[in-house]
Computed example of a mutant assay.
Amino acid sequence: MRNRMKICFAGLALLLYISGIQGQIRDTLYLWPNKVPNEISSKQRPVQYPDTSRAVIRITEITNPSLTVFKPKKEISNGISIIIAPGGGYRYLAINIEGYEVAEWLNMLGFTAFVLEYRTPDNKLGALNDMQRAIRLVRNKSKSLGLNPNKIGTMGFSAGGHLAMLSSSNFKKSSYEHSDDIDKISSRPDFSILMYPAYLDQGENNSLSDPIDLNEDMPPLFIFGTLDDPLSNGFLVLAKALKKKNIPFEMHLLPQGGHGYGMRKGNPAAEEWPNYLKKWLVKIFN
């Protein structure tokens, strides 16, 4: 009986959290007004994943990709945009712990955050389509939103970190056929933040994964992870490749923290990375 009550209270807390987010006045920008490229399903609302462990809201079956806009108070807005890609192994999106919660924190620092709902499950090409389109859409709308079109960054967690990496390295070629004038705009982010990024060492003999295309025009990168993360070899592989190509980056690896911690209290890595990131953001914009 006690276990059932705990489950009920946990479910109620999640519903209240979702209602709180939706109840606030937040704009939603849908990426594709017409046909969604590389998508066979019709547009529909996302479905909540049955797993709600650790009070994480996981959504999947995303066929109508969108950006949820989180605006800071006008008096502290710095005009800089950050597009956040939550993780979830490309199966689902951990939308609160690696999306909404991070966006609200960035708002307190003056950043405008856009939480990206990209294609899931198991549509990596569609996800890259969505990220490239999201950057173009934010750049297109920047002036009307009072934002700087030349200060747009991507930020991703786990699989979302892999997606942010692709956005930073593969911007010279569009991943989908252009459909309107927005698609003529550059999809290159001006900076990128990779939080415990996944799938970086899936090349031959655990080398850098294809199709990551390191080049001299890449934006500066911030990389954070921990050595006890099962994916930590990928962080080191990426850092070595970036150093070889003289691509600017800053990386912080802590001894402990694991994976998928977002910025919640009680995890040493979750409590530390915001401090490192704040200092890096000040550095690159000064």
Rank of each mutant, 00 (worst) to 15 (best):
A103T: 05
K35C: 15
N246K: 10
A10L: 04
S232V: 14
I185P: 00
I284E: 06
P211V: 03
E61T: 08
F222E: 12
S41H: 07
K243D: 12
K141H: 08
Q22R: 11
V56T: 12
P37D: 09
K278A: 11
T68A: 12
S168Q: 07
K141N: 13
I82A: 06
A239R: 10
K141C: 08
T52W: 04
N206D: 05
L254W: 14
I193Y: 10
P230E: 07
T120C: 10
Q202R: 07
L67G: 01
K184H: 12
T68G: 06
K141W: 00
T63A: 07
P219K: 12
I182P: 00
R58Y: 02
I152T: 15
I193K: 08
I76E: 05
G79L: 10
K74H: 06
M155C: 15
Y49S: 01
I21C: 05
D181R: 00
N78M: 06
S142W: 04
L14T: 05
N150W: 10
N3I: 10
V56C: 02
N215T: 05
Y92L: 09
R58N: 14
I223Q: 13
P248H: 04
T68W: 15
K245S: 02
I76K: 01
N206M: 04
F9E: 11
M165C: 15
N286R: 14
L242V: 07
K143F: 04
Y261H: 13
P219W: 12
E98L: 12
G156R: 06
R188N: 06
A269R: 13
P33R: 15
T112W: 02
S187F: 03
S175I: 04
G266W: 09
P268W: 04
H178K: 15
E104H: 02
D217Y: 07
G234A: 09
F171Y: 13
N96L: 02
I284Q: 06
K173P: 01
F235E: 14
N170H: 07
P86L: 10
A94Q: 03
D27M: 15
L14N: 05
V56D: 05
E98Q: 15
A159Q: 07
Y118V: 11
M195A: 10
S77T: 10
D183R: 04
L163H: 09
T154N: 10
I57Q: 01
E204V: 08
E271T: 11
L214T: 01
L16C: 05
A164E: 00
F114V: 12
Y199K: 03
N38I: 03
D210S: 03
P149G: 02
R264F: 08
M165E: 07
N150A: 10
P72H: 09
Q44F: 01
G87D: 11
R2E: 14
A241Q: 11
T60Q: 12
A239G: 15
I57P: 00
R58D: 05
Q132N: 03
S186H: 10
D213T: 06
N107I: 02
E272A: 15
I25T: 14
I18L: 07
S41A: 07
I97W: 00
K124F: 03
G203S: 02
N140I: 00
Q48Y: 01
L145K: 08
P268R: 04
K74E: 13
I152C: 14
F157N: 01
G110W: 03
S169A: 12
F70L: 08
Q256W: 08
Y199M: 05
A134K: 02
K172T: 07
Y118I: 09
L231W: 00
F224D: 13
M218S: 04
I57N: 02
G23R: 08
P274V: 14
